[in-house]
Amino acid sequence: MVQFPADRLDASFAALSDATRRGVLERLGRADASISELADTFHMTLTGMKKHVGVLEQAGLVTTQKVGRVRTCTLGRSRLADETAWIEAYRGLWASRFDALDRIVEELKQRETFDGRRQTE
């Protein structure tokens, strides 16, 4: 199994575990936004939205830039490549296990038919 940076994966999956943070990423996928705009969109306080943005920023999913009094958020450089690779590795593992289970079930069905234990229709 491929090794992935655990602390980075932990930060990314923790950030993605919250519906509001996933919504923020979806919103920023359409256009950059200030923290105030995001707070309004999600009917939150500025403090609450700053905390969500901070979690996303620590995970590398969002970057912020302050110009004057306005902090603008954009999607970060992370393209979720490591996270996707980690998920795909496990998807492949589970797919091979289910394929093996399918083969066993098919063998058992054939044995039932061969042994005459299965009723003919």
Rank of each mutant, 00 (worst) to 15 (best):
R111V: 14
A85K: 03
F42A: 00
E37Q: 12
R71I: 14
S34L: 01
E112W: 00
I35W: 03
V105S: 12
L46A: 08
A6R: 05
E57A: 09
F4Q: 01
T63A: 08
Q3K: 11
F114S: 13
R30C: 08
R79D: 15
T113W: 08
A14P: 00
Y90C: 02
M49G: 06
G48F: 01
V70E: 10
S34P: 08
R117N: 14
R97Q: 14
S36T: 13
G68K: 00
T113N: 09
G76W: 02
R27L: 13
V53Q: 04
V70R: 07
K51V: 14
S96T: 13
M1L: 12
R77D: 14
L108W: 08
G92C: 08
D32A: 15
T63Q: 10
A81S: 09
R111H: 13
V105E: 14
L93S: 06
E106N: 09
T84H: 03
T63Y: 03
L61F: 07
E26P: 09
A33P: 09
K66T: 15
D18C: 01
H43K: 11
T74N: 06
R117L: 15
R77E: 15
E83Q: 05
D10A: 09
M1R: 04
R111I: 15
R71K: 11
L101T: 11
G60E: 07
L16Y: 00
H52G: 07
T72P: 07
V24D: 04
E57N: 05
V67E: 13
R69D: 14
R22N: 07
V70I: 15
S17F: 06
L46K: 08
V2I: 10
S12L: 10
A89Y: 05
M44F: 11
A19S: 07
V67C: 05
A100F: 03
Q3L: 10
L93Y: 12
R69N: 13
K50E: 15
S96C: 01
L61Q: 06
G23T: 02
F114M: 10
L46C: 00
R71G: 04
S36I: 12
R118V: 11
V62P: 07
M44R: 13
D7F: 04
T120V: 14
G54V: 09
S78P: 05
V105K: 08
D40Q: 07
D102T: 06
R79H: 07
A31M: 09
W94E: 12
A14T: 15
S17H: 02
A95W: 01
F42Q: 01
R79V: 12
L93P: 05
W86T: 00
T63S: 11
I87F: 10
Q58C: 09
K51R: 15
F4N: 01
R69I: 12
T74W: 00
R103G: 12
I35T: 08
G48H: 05
R118W: 10
E106Q: 11
L108K: 12
A15M: 01
Q3C: 04
K109S: 14
V24W: 02
A39L: 01
H52F: 04
V67H: 06
L108T: 08
V55D: 11
R21K: 05
R30I: 13
R77G: 15
S36G: 10
L93A: 09
L80W: 00
K109C: 11
R111N: 10
G54C: 07
W94I: 14
G29W: 05
A33L: 04
G54K: 02
S36M: 10
K109P: 09
M1H: 07
L9E: 04
G68R: 02
L75M: 04
D115N: 09
W94H: 10
D40E: 13
R21H: 03
